[in-house]
């Protein structure tokens, strides 16, 4: 069996990863399906019936709350990940939209509370994936800090499974703040973002603003008072649901004129630049040099083009 070698370090794989490697093999088009919650991301899967659809290993391999790391099979649902970490008072940056850990990484979209929880790409410490040749390949390391070698984990985040089939990953966790409260506000969302120290999210639909404050109770109260001074606020259970399924990526500054860019209702994440809307964002395209790197990357990692055919990370 290729790839199952002693790595000198502690990284060895259980039967599930080895069986997954065998299942992926080295021939024929293949796609890891996850929970199909973002199945349309990056274009439609090649639809001629030739593509085998497989599932990555599931389950929590090892959770070390003291290290703030959790090692899980890529097929584990984010809900299961959340449940396991919550028991130790922790959480991760991965958004739970009903999907799997591998899916969340492959798509690479951040959580609504990204300001408070951090980005998905920063949360991935180590990846193990099955290469186009059917080998188990790992990158990164098990510790929260690491600059050993090239950053394969970053490469995998948002690559839509086109460069390798994620098998197992180590994710960084963080403590869940003691207090968490949403507020509805009438203040200008940009002024709020400037005034507050570290909100976990500020959402704006063009009229009303919702602010998510997290931390020690006293700090949340102090921040809420500061927000209230800028315009009355009231505590609410949850912010509104996105008005539509489309996700736009704009600059934080660009949100000031978001209503001239997006038709119809929207919900914008202030300080971040993500906007949920009904209409889709026009293709953004890549510069020619970046496109060349993408092309070379694909050829080098997947010479036979068998990994998730039809999908293109540039068209997410």
């Amino acid at each position: 069996m290729n790839g199952i070698v002693d790595r000198g370090s502690q990284l060895t794989f259980g039967g599930a990863v080895r069986r997954f490697a065998e299942e992926v093999g080295s021939e024929g088009p293949i796609a890891v399906q996850g929970a199909r919650t973002r199945w349309s991301a990056g274009g439609a899967l090649k639809d001629d019936g030739s593509v085998r659809q497989v599932n990555a290993p599931t389950g929590i391999v090892q959770y070390k709350p003291d290290e703030m790391t959790i090692r899980v099979g890529a097929g584990t649902s984010v809900a299961d990940l959340d449940q396991a970490t919550a028991e130790a008072g922790q959480r991760s940056a991965l958004p739970d939209r009903g999907g799997t850990v591998g899916g969340a990484l492959a798509v690479g979209e951040n959580d609504r509370d990204v300001l408070g929880r951090g980005t998905v790409r920063s949360a991935v410490l180590q990846v193990s994936y099955i290469s186009s040749e059917g080998k188990i390949v790992s990158g990164g390391g098990p510790t929260v800090k690491n600059v050993s070698g090239f950053d394969l984990p970053r490469l995998m985040v948002g690559s839509l499974g086109t460069l390798g089939c994620l098998a197992e990953v180590i994710i960084r966790t963080n403590p869940i703040p003691p207090t968490s409260q949403w507020f509805r506000s009438t203040a200008d969302p940009f002024d709020l973002y400037d005034a507050l120290l570290a909100p976990s999210a500020i959402l704006w639909d063009g009229t009303a603003t919702w602010v998510h404050l997290e931390g020690h109770g006293a700090d949340v109260a102090a921040e809420a008072a500061r927000a209230n001074a800028m315009g009355p606020i009231e505590p609410v259970g949850e912010p509104p649901s996105p008005p539509g399924p489309q996700r736009w990526s704009l600059t934080p500054a660009g949100l000031r004129s978001v209503d001239t860019v997006i038709d119809g209702p929207f919900l914008a994440s202030i300080g971040v630049g993500v906007v949920w809307a009904v209409t889709p964002q026009p293709p953004r395209g890549l510069t020619q040099p970046v496109q060349s790197i993408h092309d070379r990357m694909k050829i080098l990692f997947d010479p036979t083009g068998r990994l998730n055919p039809g999908r293109n990370p540039a068209q997410k």
Binding site: L155, R247, S249, L250, T251, G254, G273
Partner: peptide, 13 residues
């Protein structure tokens, strides 16, 4: 500067 730039995370790499 946008929230989630298109394509692979070449910046991160």
């Amino acid at each position: 500067l946008d929230a989630e730039p298109a394509g692979l995370d070449l910046r991160g790499v």
